[in-house]
Design a protein around this nucleic acid. Structure first.
Length: 665
DNA sequence: ATAGGGTTAG
């Protein structure tokens, strides 16, 4: 039977066994080798086995051994491992495929996955070649369709989503073989993971059209996709649809919606679902550590560490131990707020509990230290990370490149990037290069920076990467900010030539550049054209508004502002532009009135509003703000919920308050 | 299968 199982179009196994039978009394060298391998393998005499293997090794010999021992996978694996150690022998595709069949039929899925990966990643076979290899050694008498599921898993595991899809379709159309729903789910899950949501919906519909019945896993994927697209209401109705269809949601279903809610700062919804979990599932489903971690993360992102901590206490009370992720989330939450002390205290608590800090925690710490410019402490943690052998990943690299760049160490960032390229450690996503371009444009000394930008991009092209939309966008914006619109337009032209589509962000850069450097009238013409295409948003209009204000086009500015209000296309920036404008041309009083209007419309003034009003009040010759008036202005803003800008406060308001208390003494 | 870290384009 095994001959049937492993017979292939290309295989000469059957022929060989006939040969074996015919010459039973005069065995050929391969037969002798085969017999002694079998004997030694059965007795696990690895040393002898190695001796035999070091000579006479052929693919057909290996195939025979694998077939012979197919029911004892551990022996097959042990044998195969030794075969792999023979430097002079490289097993054929057929040979490895047979091995994979043996592994799958004895449920050794992990090992099978590694072998398939190996075929594609190191031996260089394409996914379709592997598919053919597996198909040729596949026999429907031994029902083991999982091999193809494993091939799909292998493709998705290293991001070859198109390959996975091709395998599914090839099996379906060329061979009439339908992969399992699990394979489809695995493929669909990876589409979501790589943010290809459009593709997800298309392929999901395709799967349904083939008559597959969605299972709980599929439904959960759909809910996950809906949450990613911030369609929470639809996600919740999908929940009820599942119930109606007799598929019972599980804790994963809940967690996905709760996480979706928390990710868009809708903690209330997340909490509601969390509290109602029991009732909604008739007591079957309880929150787990993931549920708590999602909610804790939601609070951390809002800066509400009190509630984050109390959820951590609640989970402990319910017998769920906070894990590494819980602590990593909290540590990041504290650092995000600038509470280094609390963060480091939590770190030492972790260590006390025997939870080692991993690269995620280190990345978070180093990032926030760089963020506040504390390079010294950042370096301390970095060297500690190295000393304790914690691996750098793409996050670490990006934190280092952006952190160095932002803190005035652009050359070091460039050097580090060069080193990463040399060591082949740079991702294909162009993140690092785009970040370098961004910071180079902002580093002063325009000519020198542009040369360095050119260098970075040339190196990138040498590595076979083209510029993506973000690279072009960053350059267009960079040139616009430098005031060289001719270069910005030239890059725009290059981008079109390369077949890249401009998007709204790029148009907005150009509109802003035109307003600031060429002419606001030209910008107005462009905005009118964009409006016809429906390609504009509040940022576009803010740029134009700012352009009108800067050019003293008062009527145009006010007209535009009213239009924007009508269309409900206003944000904080809109008001700040106007506050600034009124402070500059008119009076602080009018600026404050715009600020009041802002508050009435439910927009909380920010530290920029604060700086505009306070600095102009001090300079104002019209309104004659006294020291008391400035302090009153400060108080008024704080009451309205403004977080004062640190620098403005320290240089203007702080000294005034000190002066006042000094006089009171 | 779901949870933590990087923000490079207006």
């Amino acid at each position: 039977m095994f001959l049937k199982l492993f017979s292939t179009k290309r295989s000469n196994l059957s022929a060989r066994s006939v040969h074996f039978g015919k010459h039973f009394h005069h065995p050929n060298p391969e037969d002798i080798a085969f017999s002694s391998i079998c004997v030694n393998l059965r007795q696990r005499k690895w040393k002898y086995l190695d001796q035999i293997l070091s000579s006479n090794l052929t693919n057909s010999l290996v195939n025979r051994v694998v077939s012979e021992f197919r029911m004892s996978p551990d022996l097959v694996l042990g044998f195969y491992k030794r075969v792999g150690e023979q430097k002079s022998f490289s097993p054929s595709l057929e040979c490895v495929c047979m091995l994979i069949h043996v592994m799958i039929s004895s449920k050794m899925y992990e090992d099978a996955l590694i072998s398939i990966n190996n075929l594609m990643q190191t031996m260089g076979y394409s996914h379709l070649e592997v598919l053919e290899g597996l198909w040729d050694s596949y026999d429907s008498e031994i029902w083991c369709p999982n091999v193809f599921d494993s091939l799909i898993r292998a493709c998705t595991s290293f991001g070859a989503l198109n390959s996975a899809y091709e395998v599914i379709i090839n099996l379906r159309t060329e061979k009439g073989f339908h992969v399992s729903i699990h394979a489809w789910n695995n493929f669909l899950n990876h589409l979501i993971k790589s943010n290809e949501l459009n593709s997800f919906w298309k392929k999901h519909a395709e799967m349904i059209s083939y008559g597959y019945t969605e299972n709980i896993y599929t439904y959960n994927l759909v809910i996950n996709a809906l949450c990613k697209e911030i369609r929470l209401q639809e996600a919740i109705s999908m929940f009820y649809q599942m119930l109606k269809g007799g598929i019972y949601p599980n804790v994963v279903t809940f967690n996905m919606i709760i996480n979706g809610a928390c990710k868009v700062s809708n903690i209330e919804l997340g909490l509601k679902l969390f509290r109602k979990m029991g009732v909604m599932s008739m007591g079957y489903i309880n929150p787990n550590s993931i549920t708590f971690n999602c909610l804790i993360n939601g609070y951390c992102k809002l800066g509400d560490m009190k509630n984050a901590e109390s959820l951590k206490d609640e989970m402990t009370k319910r017998g769920i131990q906070p894990n590494l992720i819980t602590y990593a989330t909290l540590v990041d939450g504290y650092l995000r707020k600038g509470c280094k002390k609390d963060a480091f205290m939590l770190c030492s608590l972790m260590v006390d509990k025997g939870i080692a800090l991993n690269n995620v925690v280190y990345n978070s710490i180093i990032h926030w230290l760089f963020f506040e410019g504390d390079i010294t402490t950042a370096s301390v943690f970095l060297s500690y990370m190295i000393k304790t052998n914690i691996c750098f990943d793409k996050f670490t690299n990006s934190i280092l490149v952006t952190g160095l760049s932002r803190n005035g160490y652009l050359n070091q960032a460039l050097d580090y990037h060069k080193w990463l390229v040399l060591k082949n450690l740079v991702d294909k996503d162009r993140f690092l290069e785009n970040a370098l371009v961004y910071y180079l444009f902002r580093s002063g000394n325009d000519n020198e920076s542009v040369l360095k930008v050119k260098q970075v991009l040339d190196d990138m092209i040498d590595r076979g990467l083209d510029l993506d939309t973000i690279t072009y966008g960053t350059m267009i914006d960079g040139f616009s900010k430098q005031g060289s619109m001719s270069n910005a337009i030239r890059v725009y032209g290059d981008m079109i030539k390369e077949g890249k589509k401009p998007n709204l962000v790029i148009y907005n850069s150009i509109v802003d550049g035109l307003c600031k450097n060429l002419s606001v009238d030209l910008a107005k013409i462009m905005v009118d054209e964009l409006k016809k295409l429906g390609l504009f948003d509040v940022v576009t209009l803010n740029s134009l508004l700012n352009g009108f204000c800067a050019n003293w086009k008062v009527n145009e500015a006010l007209n535009l502002f009213f239009q924007m209000q009508e269309a409900k296309l206003v944000n904080k920036v809109t008001y700040n532009i106007l506050v600034n404008f009124f402070c500059k041309i008119g009076s602080i009083q009018e600026g404050r009135e715009v600020m009041e209007m802002m508050v009435d419309n439910g927009v909380i003034p920010d530290s920029i509003t604060y700086t505009i009003l306070v600095t102009n009040a001090c300079k104002s010759k019209v309104d004659c703000y006294s020291r008391e008036d400035v302090i009153e202005l400060h108080d008024d803003l704080v009451v309205k919920g403004v977080k004062p800008d640190g620098q403005t406060y320290d240089s203007i308001v702080g000294p005034l308050i000190d002066e006042e208390s000094f006089e009171l003494l």
